[in-house]
Amino acid sequence: MTGAGRRWQRVWVLLGVLTVVLALTLWPDSPREAARAAQACGAGDVNRATLTTKGGVTLHPCLSKVTTVMTVPRTQTSSLGCGTLFLQPCYEIKWHITAVSKTANQTLKYADGTTESGLYRLTFQQFQIDKSATLATSGGSGYTTTLVPDTSAKLGNASGQTINTDLWVTADSTINLSFLTFSCNDNVRPDNGLWTLADVFIDVSAGGCGMNLKIRYAVTTSSGANGEITGAYSVNLPNTLLTVS
């Protein structure tokens, strides 16, 4: 073996070992570890947000700035006579609520100390998904959870205690709501006056045809003491297909 050959062999061995050591040390951290680090709300939890639900429950979550996008795509069933003030149902009803309300000027404080204002708190009462919905996080790896119930998936049951789902969403979130003479034709943003009308006029039940909500934080509470959900008032997913793609 020549001296040059020995030197090259030594170089190859060093390169091989160095490659493995670098791969072990420089491989990026997992999102879970990064999220855990981001969720450290500082000494004494000074960066925890203070939120109040529609039912008056005060929460102090540690928010990591990850946005969950909930999407229910609209499906048009007719193109004749569609639009506001037309009674013709033109879109398939895909979700139900018994009441809605909104509260503007919400400000969230995140774990890194920053704040975001101009958010809306949307409250769905007895929120029920009849067809399908997808959930995806903006900070994840591009995976989407799809929820397809056989009949309907509910957060809490439809009778007894009232279950409220409070969502803190951005101003560009939209829903397609059907009540009175309003069909699902319009993408209704939280700053749209239709929300106020819906808050007043929906008394028993209303349907929706689609939604695209950019959710900063979501929580489900009951009308019981401290908003706790116990016993049968849990997530109800009968014959529901959950897929991750």
């Binding site: 090259w8 062999q9 030594r10 190859w12 390169l15 490659t19």
Partner: peptide, 19 residues
């Protein structure tokens, strides 16, 4: 990383039999 390291060390063994 570990599977790749095994393949890498196999390759190094072929080009550097002294080690």
């Amino acid at each position: 990383i570990l599977g790749g390291a095994m393949v890498l060390f196999a390759g190094v063994a072929l080009v550097s039999p002294l080690y």
